[in-house]
């Protein structure tokens, strides 16, 4: 035993845990009981020798460099199974989201980055870069063909920018771009039940890759534009089909 108490000198450098502390219940990671329920239910446990419990332990131990070098945050699907079963309500997915943000934007996975950037570059907010004009053309083309070939649906509608419609319906870009006939069953169902609905001409794309990118600004832009067009058209309900 030392003659006198050992005192650690200097001020502790702020670390990753300090940044994530506000997300923790009472700001205290010691609340983690290391029970491992998170890891046992996480399909990404073991990839790159990592799992949610290990991640929290490393965070607690200040192993910032190792955490930041890990690819593991991109193996999380944000499914929230871990936080649902956590007896201490530790929001691990939200921490993973913040860690994605620590990666410089240009170094985040290219597939997600390109889809996010593509969406931000057009008024449709389409990750596949579909312009409002192309969307309108495809919708009308498929609609006319259906009305002609299936005369029971000669009154079928697929309105764009119809003011005062009850539902504003959005549309994943995948259908108009790669399998337009897949849009028809939903139109038919809405028609059968007599729903008042419309697509918007802008901000119609349902996908939001900026969310996966952990790009708060881009995510908000896409969401806000969809909300604005819903309000502009006076629609009561925003129906997110994604």
């Amino acid at each position: 035993m030392a003659e006198t108490a050992i005192k650690l000198g200097g001020k502790r450098k702020p670390n990753l845990l300090d940044e994530l502390r506000e997300m923790l219940p009472q700001g205290n990671l010691n609340l983690c009981l290391t029970c491992g329920l998170c890891s046992s239910g996480c399909p990404s446990s073991s990839f790159d020798d990592m799992d949610p419990r290990k991640f929290l332990r490393m965070l607690s131990l200040g192993m910032d460099e190792e955490i930041l070098a890990s690819r593991w945050p991109w193996f999380c699907s944000m499914c929230q199974r871990c936080s649902r079963v956590c007896p201490m309500q530790i929001d691990i997915p939200q921490m993973i989201y913040k860690l994605r943000q620590k990666v410089p934007r240009s170094e985040r996975p290219k597939g997600i980055l390109h889809s996010c950037d593509a969406a931000l570059a057009n008024e449709s907010l389409s990750a596949m870069g579909t312009s409002p004009e192309d969307f309108e053309w495809i919708v009308n083309d498929v609609l006319e063909e259906t009305q002609t070939d299936q005369p029971e649906f000669k009154d079928l509608e697929a309105p764009l920018d119809k003011e005062g419609a009850h539902f504003l319906v959005n549309q994943n870009s995948r259908e108009p771009m790669t399998e337009p006939d897949e849009m028809v069953p939903l139109w038919k169902i809405l028609h059968q039940v007599g729903a008042s609905w419309t697509y918007p001409k802008t901000a119609w794309a349902a996908e939001n890759y900026c969310l996966f990118m952990a790009d708060d600004e881009g995510w908000e832009h896409i969401t806000r534009k969809a909300a604005e067009v819903t309000d502009k058209l006076g629609c009561k309900i925003f129906l997110n089909t994604e």
């Binding site: 399909p43 990404s44 990839f47 699907s77 944000m78 499914c79 996975p109 997600i112 996966f212």
Partner: peptide
Amino acid sequence: SNNYCCGGGGGFLQSGFPEERRGYGKIK
């Protein structure tokens, strides 16, 4: 609510890690 995620979400399909994505989806 107790189900497992299929592993397509959160950007996994576009992130360029097919081995891990399918490993994740094996449970599903």
